[in-house]
């Protein structure tokens, strides 16, 4: 029962993250949405594990821990890119797609 509930939570958070990624113009909002999606995936990854003799399975825990560190690494790099883009172009949004330029 609890596992299904958390699967639903992970699905909802992932969906909200996708929504945020698509409708946000500001790059930092997109980054926040991507982090939400990452958290949902980690939750799902852990929910798939079965307890072994009463103890939780250590392999998915190690994988998710690795994932958290990689998430913060990529977030830090993305933030540095965003600040640089803002300095150079004056806006923290991606340029609009103009169908006329080729």
């Amino acid at each position: 029962m609890t596992a299904e509930l958390y699967v639903f939570a992970a699905a909802a958070v992932f969906g909200i993250g996708v929504h945020g990624l698509l409708i946000a113009r500001h790059l930092m909002r997109k980054l926040l949405a991507v982090n939400l999606m990452l958290s949902a995936v980690f939750l799902l990854l852990l929910l798939f594990s079965t307890p072994i003799g009463g103890k939780p399975d250590p392999i998915p825990q190690a994988l998710v821990l690795t994932g958290i560190v990689i998430a913060v690494s990529s977030t830090a790099f993305a933030l540095a890119l965003m600040v640089r883009l803002f300095r150079l172009s004056g806006r923290a949004t991606l340029p609009r797609f103009e169908p006329d330029d080729d």
Binding site: A10, A11, F14, G15, V18, L44, L47
Partner: peptide, 14 residues
């Protein structure tokens, strides 16, 4: 799209 994504995750999860 976000609804479909959420549904995908839910199906995979279950």
């Amino acid at each position: 799209l976000s609804l479909l994504a959420g549904l995908l995750v839910a199906v995979l999860g279950l």
